[in-house]
């Protein structure tokens, strides 16, 4: 008897196979690493600018590395909606916290919660970055993002008690993710060499 068709499993397989190239890890690792390096130079704003460059570079890398090897797929619109919704939730949360902090500071003095956040900045940054990894992991169905979230939490909670400068942890975290991403990319390229597969209806006689 034919096996029951598990559409969720098939959809998940299609989705995860599209992200097994490690590119998202390479770009995330590179961005975090570069952010750490800019912190040393006291030019953290450069790290934010790089985000915009990285997004377009990521799309180009997908076109050059991934699509020729495993093909192109356009996912159902609800996936894109989930991505936009997740991004909006995260951005709104940060914007809301920023506005509240600004208004309370303007109202006279620094609020207690902001003082607490500044005092425990390692924990705040760790939780924020870990939460961002969780959102990316949930949206793209990439389980290893949860491992990165856990790694981030462990590193920054440890950092909270060790009192080393922030950029040490940022650079270490970025390097680890970048190395893992590169390893995945190499494995992906070896596993899926450039396809010589003909397209449907292509007689394979071109150039003869």
């Amino acid at each position: 008897m034919a096996e029951k068709i598990n559409l969720k499993k098939i959809e998940r397989k299609a989705y995860t196979s599209y992200h097994q190239d490690g590119l998202i890890d390479v770009f995330a690792g590179f961005l975090i690493l570069s952010f750490g390096l800019w912190l040393i130079l006291d030019m953290a704003w450069m790290g934010w600018i790089l985000w915009f460059v990285a997004v377009s570079a990521y799309a180009a890398a997908k076109r050059v590395v991934t699509i020729p090897r495993i093909g192109f797929v356009k996912f159902a619109p609800h996936r894109a909606k989930a991505l936009v919704t997740s991004a909006l939730i995260v951005l709104s949360l940060f914007a809301f916290l920023g506005v509240v902090a600004f208004m309370q500071t303007e109202g006279g003095g620094t609020p207690l919660w902001l003082l607490f956040a500044i005092e425990n900045y390692m924990l705040v940054i760790g939780v924020s970055v870990a939460a961002s990894f969780c959102v990316v992991g949930y949206t793209f169905r990439i389980r290893r993002m949860y491992a990165y979230a856990l790694l981030t939490l462990i590193m920054f909670v440890t950092g909270h008690f060790l009192y080393y400068p922030l950029h040490y942890y940022v650079i270490l975290l970025g390097s680890l993710i970048l190395l893992f991403g590169l390893a995945m990319l190499v494995r992906f390229i070896r596993r899926y060499p450039l396809s010589t597969t003909r397209s449907m209806g292509d007689s394979g006689n071109e150039g003869q």
Binding site: I10, E11, A14, G71, K74, P77, T197, M200, G201
Partner: peptide, 28 residues
């Protein structure tokens, strides 16, 4: 069909990778 049902559209190569079928088999 199940592989196409869960996405909006896909190219031949992607379907081939997902199904594990040969070019001729999938094309047929």
């Amino acid at each position: 069909m199940a592989h196409l049902f869960v996405v909006e559209s896909a190219d031949f190569l992607f379907l081939q990778r997902q199904t594990g079928l040969t070019w001729g088999n999938l094309s047929s």
